[in-house]
Design a protein around this nucleic acid. Structure first.
Length: 280
DNA sequence: CAAAGCTCCTGACCGC
DNA sequence: TGCGGTCAGGAGCTTT
């Protein structure tokens, strides 16, 4: 999916349509996604006001009136499609994997589509969010102050797993997925296979701002793709972006003076791309 | 054959 | 040696 920057972009894309609006109609076309949808899900959402939309980790949080939160996760293949009221077909036509459709009181549509159904939607009382099973063991946000070199050192100094695996662990830090971990490790010159406890203090110091930077640049890139939806009509989800190593197996390393090729290996069952010369 | 995420299971290991 | 807790690695969910 959608890692943190993509979720942030989806958030920014749906805010203009949803924030401050009431849900006029909700269509639920399946019983369950990754987990079962709540009982009477559509009925419970209908008529509710969406007060504010935020993001925590890779989750979208729609604060509803009545002190309840609609939790959304896009999984690996989830996306949101926006259809402006004026662009709707006479009878609405939905795609095979359009699972949940939100229609606002302005009659715009936000369609949640997810072929693999690794995504989810559920409801939670606002005050119970932090204790919710999906949230209670989450680590800090990578863009917040709590995520710093001292914190990260404490998390990795006793871990024998590859640093890549540790950075993918949402208990250590949230929001990073396979792509941005590969990118950050390349930019830091650290091999994804390096054991976490073998990182030097200067490497830990270095990778924190690199992680922040790679995410912030991707968020900015997502923001510019949003301009394509100025007329409120389009798909929000994974967006293609310039990657230095991800998906570039066999291509030349981007670093000047390096004439090596990007290699693909598998770490914890996930494809991992890196430059064997620049990262060690 | 691979895929952007996440959870669950098993077996190994650790300290008391 | 036994016990509970933590850690590491792998399978699996599902569709295109």
């Amino acid at each position: 999916m959608p890692e943190l920057p993509e979720v942030e972009t989806v958030k920014n894309g749906i805010i203009p349509l949803l924030e401050g609006r009431r849900l006029f109609r909700v269509i639920q076309r399946r019983d369950k996604l990754r987990i079962p949808l709540p009982d009477n899900f559509a009925e419970r959402l209908t008529g509710r006001k969406v007060e504010r939309i935020t993001r925590r980790a890779k989750y979208l949080l729609l604060q509803l009136d009545g002190a309840e939160i609609l939790i959304c996760h896009l999984g690996m293949s989830g996306k949101m499609t926006l259809v402006a009221a004026k662009d709707r077909n006479k009878p609405d036509e939905f795609e095979k994997h359009d699972h949940i459709i939100l229609e606002t009181d302005a009659h715009d549509l936000v369609i949640f589509n997810d072929p693999r159904r690794f995504g989810l939607m559920t409801l939670c009382k606002t005050e119970e969010l932090d204790q919710h099973a999906l949230f209670h063991h989450m680590g800090p946000e990578p863009l917040g102050n709590e995520f710093n070199a001292e914190y990260l050192m404490g998390k990795i100094e006793k871990r024998r797993s590859p640093i890549k695996t540790i950075l993918l662990d949402q208990r250590v830090v949230v929001g990073l997925g396979n792509i941005y971990v590969c990118e950050a490790l390349f930019l830091a010159g650290i091999s994804p296979e390096k054991k976490a406890h073998d990182l030097m203090p200067d490497e830990v110091e270095k990778i924190v701002p690199i992680i922040r930077n790679v995410l912030q640049k991707a968020i900015a890139a997502g923001g510019s793709t949003l301009k394509d939806y100025a007329h409120v009509d389009g798909e929000l989800g994974y967006f293609q972006h310039e990657f230095k190593v991800y998906g570039r197996e066999g291509e030349s390393c981007e670093n000047a003076l390096c004439n090596h090729k990007i290699v693909r290996i598998t770490i914890s069952n996930r494809s991992t791309f890196y430059c064997p010369s620049c990262q060690d």
